[in-house]
Design a protein around this nucleic acid. Structure first.
Lengths: 198, 198, 198, 198
DNA sequence: GATGAATGAGCTTTCATTCAT
DNA sequence: CATGAATGAAAGCTCATTCAT
């Protein structure tokens, strides 16, 4: 960011910009995310946008960071060893559903499609490492299977994200049945039965 | 498409264009997919491209249809009742891995990011219906659980796609261990154990 | 200027602004001269800058006037009839070198490239008239040739300015040899030998 | 340049663009040189401009090169040893006047004010070297004085350019009297009389 | 008076699309 | 039919200027 917002007014402006960007990203995709559109939706002038973000990439980078923080918070909660196994899985699933209920599609676009700025590599690596750690922890603690934790965690992460994103697309994120099946998916995959040779 | 290619030469041209488009889509993403770039990679003039495809959206629509056909073929094979349950699951997983090994990223971009043309709705609906049918069939045949097949199929579809896409991103599609875990995921989710109340 | 600075504090502010403008003009050229940059270098807020100068053009107009005053002072000294011919030429050359040693490039940009404000015409005409007068005086007094003083003065003015600017660009303004050649140029051109027919 | 114009149509387009750029540069200065204005004056679309020149800097770089070629041609002619000393000086002065009669101010802006592209350094160095060589040759051949040829050539180059530019500004380039005084300036400066100690 | 957040006209550049050759 | 030069709407971004605090 070009300058850190100190005053309340600035803070409100940057927040409005970030919200608008996330909203548009989910609604119209990366192609539809124009800086002018962001400014308009945020209710500020294009000049104000560029007062805080040096360029478009830096803007979505900031949006990305916000999302990453959300996801990591969920993973941290799901790794809390002071609660039961069931509670942790529930926390993971519910947290993911909650996160994706705001700007359902934005998260997907952010991770999968949007170009990366120069210093995005670092942000992303930090996130992916923390993310993997989170899933692996979940795995190690909750699973009684003996298997390659690395691969399992990766598959689980992809599966959860994919199922949640699909639900977001189908607009069924709020359905209790979906939640139940998601929990089911995680529980079963973390269960003791080893890999079936097929 | 503006005109159906009858002669062999035309057919080769359109194929080259579609290949080029898929390649660029995977390599440079939707933002990098320009009609001029497609023409250049295909070794055709930009004028020729527009002889066969009325506009950019029609072009990626055609690419999408090709991918859809591939996926549907895999699902059809996985629904073949003449083989064993294990064989069917293996066919599903292996088919998905194979499809995503060519242009690993293109598939993702195609489904999740690229704008839809006017008549894309129909193509997509047809595909999604067939896709759901395929997964539901797999579900009904293989699962012994009593549950809402609709939701289960959706979660499974999303989970498989997500895990495969994640593997494509991590460049681990060829790993045997990944395949094993994927099979494991499907088998477990289709197993008899009912949804755990969490 | 919007208001004449009376108090010492105001005077210091406007001076800082003018210095900053000249500095940037020399360092980054006309394209690099932004009002925000001037304010920053001057250590003032952009708002304060506009308190004293109604717009950008008025600002550089003021810078121009300062430079003009410097040049005119040199010409006046060089027209002083109480000293010898040699002394006067030396005063001209040394004065020019001195002026161009501060902000070497700024002077050039100011005269040759920067857009003129509405009321700049007057300022400039006043200067050019005085300038021509100065050079013509030098000519009439020092030259023994019979020729069109007007044209000769113009050529001499252009030649001196050009040579000095070139030296500023080559960073050789301080070289004694350069000074000697400059003096030589003026002396020779003011000498008695009439125009050679070529 | 993005692509070398082969066909006659392309060649006409690029020429029109370069002419328009030089014209505007002289008329409105660097600040007034917008790519849109160039395209409009050239009578082509902005897209066509960018088909041949990758960006604005590359465009003025091309203009610069054209001017440099003109100047170097004049210097080469003025260094021709097969003619008399007077002829050479006349060729220099007349050539300079001719060059500056088209787009009188453009040349100045080009040399002194316009930002340099990345690879401009080379172009410029090549030119300055050739330019200095040309003037030094003139010096060595024509002057009978013993002095530092380097400094003398530099002062002469600056003086000639300055006087010509001043005449261009005063719109007196066509005056025969001006030409006579210019010749006079060169002849005198190249004459046998050594540097006067002042 | 001083400040600096906010504004928006205008500039550079891209790329889908057309059409004369 | 194939070509690729030409087009121009629209996107990213800057910077002179204003005005609420």
């Amino acid at each position: 960011m070009r300058k850190e917002p100190r005053q309340a007014r600035s803070r409100a402006t940057t927040d409005a910009i970030l919200d608008a960007a996330a909203h548009i990203l989910g609604e119209r995709g990366w192609t539809g995310l124009t800086t002018n559109a962001v400014a308009e939706v945020a209710g500020v002038s294009i000049g104000s946008l560029y007062q805080y973000f040096p360029n478009k990439l830096a803007l979505i980078e900031a949006v990305r960071r916000r999302h990453f923080d959300d996801v990591l918070a969920v993973l941290r909660a799901a790794a809390d060893e002071k609660t039961s196994r069931q509670r942790r899985i529930a926390a993971l699933v519910d947290g993911m559903i909650t996160i994706h209920s705001r700007y359902p599609a934005a998260h997907r676009v952010l991770l999968e499609e949007s170009p990366r700025g120069a210093d995005s590599r670092k942000t992303c690596d930090v996130f992916e490492t923390a993310c993997r750690k989170g899933y692996e922890a979940l795995f190690k603690v909750n699973s009684r299977r003996e298997t390659d934790v690395r691969v399992g965690a990766q598959v689980l992460a992809g599966a959860v994200a994919g199922a949640v994103h699909e639900a977001a697309r189908q607009n069924t994120l709020a359905s209790p049945m979906l939640r139940a099946e998601l929990v089911n998916l995680v529980v079963l995959f973390l269960s003791k039965r080893g890999p079936c040779s097929v």
